[in-house]
Design a protein around this nucleic acid. Structure first.
Length: 276
DNA sequence: GGCGATCTGTTCTAATACAA
DNA sequence: TTGTATTAGAACAGATCGCC
């Protein structure tokens, strides 16, 4: 077992990754002749070890097994914990549904590790940064001018699914793309050339991991459940708070952000992009 | 191996920009 | 003012994964 943990640690270090999923991990262990993989159920032998807690620092994000470096501080709440927190959160969130002023968000921000407590229900989500100075100077300055730390507000018919997309790059998160661009990341050249949608650029797997790590460390979230016109509430909140990374419906949308996003789209759609 | 949950590429919708 | 194009952002649907 020590050999397995050691090999995964080495692999993560050499490839500059912070974590690996069970299927990929079993594949590299099989290639190294350490742990044979299942032909029809990829990753199954390793998952069985994980379920027996043979790799104690591994954890589940939703259903997926994640193995960070053995000395990593990255952890998520386990399933039992998340189930109980889910029930509590659901109750709390419904209580927040009593909105008296539809332009003011009744929020109590929490760390990203509370992602599993978010219900799969419709509502508005709100993301704030712990410290504006973590952003590049120009964006920090804009945020300070707005007098709050809220950087993004969005709506979702399914908050759990949408926030997994936005915060963990499991889909096409507008917030994730905007934040990555603001932090200085760019998509791989030509990565959208063979795609039908020429706008939904993605960062490299390594960059995605770094952005996710940044989000986990520096972003807090909250949400409210809403049954009704989500667009109406979202529009009101965006007009009220003018979040830094919202473009749509935002009276103070940033030209700098639109320019960065356009640059990313251009890079992803070109093999010979040269930055100015 | 069945079944449900999650992931990922694609599509849809609404808002905005711009030209006629 | 109206029609069309573009963009941002959410949802859909098939594929894949993981549990039992």
């Amino acid at each position: 077992m020590e050999k397995i943990i050691e090999y995964i640690d080495d692999y993560l270090r050499v490839n500059n990754l912070i974590q690996i999923d069970a299927v990929t991990a079993n594949a590299i262990l099989a290639k190294a002749g350490i742990l044979r993989d299942s032909v029809d159920r990829l990753g199954k032998p390793l998952r069985e070890l994980l379920r027996k807690n043979k790799i104690p620092h591994a954890f589940q994000n939703g259903r997926n097994w994640i193995i960070p470096k053995s000395d990593s501080k990255v952890t998520f709440i386990n399933k039992q914990e998340s189930d109980s927190k889910y029930k509590t959160a659901k109750k709390d969130s419904f209580s927040k549904f009593q909105i008296k002023d539809d332009s003011i968000l009744p929020l109590k921000f929490k760390g990203i590790t509370q992602i599993n407590a978010i219900p799969a229900l419709p509502g508005i989500y709100c993301l704030k940064i712990k410290e504006p100075s973590l952003l590049p100077e120009i964006f920090c300055s804009h945020l300070i001018d707005r007098g709050h730390d809220i950087i993004y507000i969005g709506l979702a018919k399914n908050l759990k699914r949408r926030l997994n997309q936005e915060l963990f790059a499991k889909g096409h998160g507008t917030f994730f793309r905007s934040l990555g661009a603001v932090l200085g990341y760019r998509p791989e050249q030509g990565s959208l050339l063979n795609k039908i949608n020429k706008k939904n650029f993605k960062f490299s797997a390594k960059d995605e991991q770094e952005i996710i790590k940044w989000i986990v460390e520096n972003i807090e979230l909250d949400w409210i459940l809403i049954e009704g016109d989500l667009n109406f509430f979202e529009g009101n909140y965006i007009r009220k708070y003018k979040p830094l990374l919202n473009i749509d419906k935002n009276p103070l949308k940033l030209l700098e952000l639109s320019t960065l996003r356009a640059e990313c789209v251009e890079i992803a759609n070109s093999m010979n992009f040269k930055a100015l």
